[in-house]
């Protein structure tokens, strides 16, 4: 049978998400941003995706280069609001980047079974857990459905363009939403049936095949990242 390499627990990654979000909202310091990225990239190293880690580091460095490059252009060559707009875009991208890294870590290292067990241990309401699980499970399917609908629109001769969407917003939404809703109704019905026969409503304590527990590594990551980010935000 398959033995998985023990990576950081889902709850640790969830905690890091909240921690980074708070610090990146309340502190504008570049050092906090860099430390946030460092924390995120360490979780990536923990799942042993070294090639991807290298690519993500290059991406982050490029965003920094773009940020300072645009700043230099604005101050010396071209004093335009367009450059400012691009700078805002880069600023936002830099702040979203650590969350993308954490998202990839989750996607690559955690199964939905592990996530369900971890959420159960947080004593969240079953309804909330089921909503989260269904959302994660069906995001890829929604993307596929969206693609099929755009193809069907093209076959029907319905224009798919930014201009059409601006001029006819209600119609555009209708064309996308109506088939998607009917599709979702059927999917939800089938999914609920499968959930019931697989014991989702069973009133007992859920067990887990996978090792879902907080280890010393998790505690160390939580304590060190919280302390360092706090220190960084207060002192530097």
């Amino acid at each position: 049978m398959i033995e998985k390499h023990k990576t950081l627990d889902f709850r640790t990654i969830l905690y890091l998400n909240i921690l980074l979000m708070l610090f990146l909202i309340f502190s504008g310091k570049q050092q906090v941003l860099m430390l946030s990225f460092l924390v995120a990239i360490l979780t990536m190293l923990d799942i042993r995706e070294f090639a991807l880690t290298a690519k993500l580091i290059v991406g982050f460095v490029l965003l920094f280069v773009a940020h300072y490059g645009l700043d230099a252009i604005y101050r010396t060559i071209w004093n335009s609001s367009f450059i400012l707009l691009l700078e805002i875009f880069i600023f936002l991208a830099q702040r979203i980047y650590p969350f993308i890294v954490l998202g990839i870590v989750l996607k690559r290292s955690k199964t939905l079974g592990e996530i369900t067990t971890a959420l159960n241990r947080l004593h969240l309401h079953k309804g909330i857990i089921l909503s989260l699980v269904v959302m994660i499970r069906y995001l890829p399917a929604i993307k596929d459905d969206f693609h099929v609908i755009t193809e069907a629109m093209r076959l029907k001769g319905i224009p798919i363009s930014f201009r059409y969407a601006i001029l006819h917003p209600i119609k555009t939404i209708e064309y996308f939403i109506v088939p998607m809703l009917f599709r979702s109704m059927k999917t939800t019905e089938e999914f609920s049936g499968a959930a019931l026969v697989k014991g989702y409503e069973f009133h007992g304590t859920r067990t887990s095949y996978f090792d879902v527990k907080m280890t010393y590594k998790d505690m160390a990551v939580i304590i060190i990242s919280t302390s360092l980010l706090t220190l960084c935000a207060i002192t530097i």
Binding site: T111, L112, R137
Partner: peptide
């Protein structure tokens, strides 16, 4: 319910 074979197979037993 899940995106991979192993975790789907054990899912009902866990429940």
């Amino acid at each position: 319910f899940t995106l991979d074979v192993l975790s789907d197979m054990v899912f009902s037993c866990e429940n």
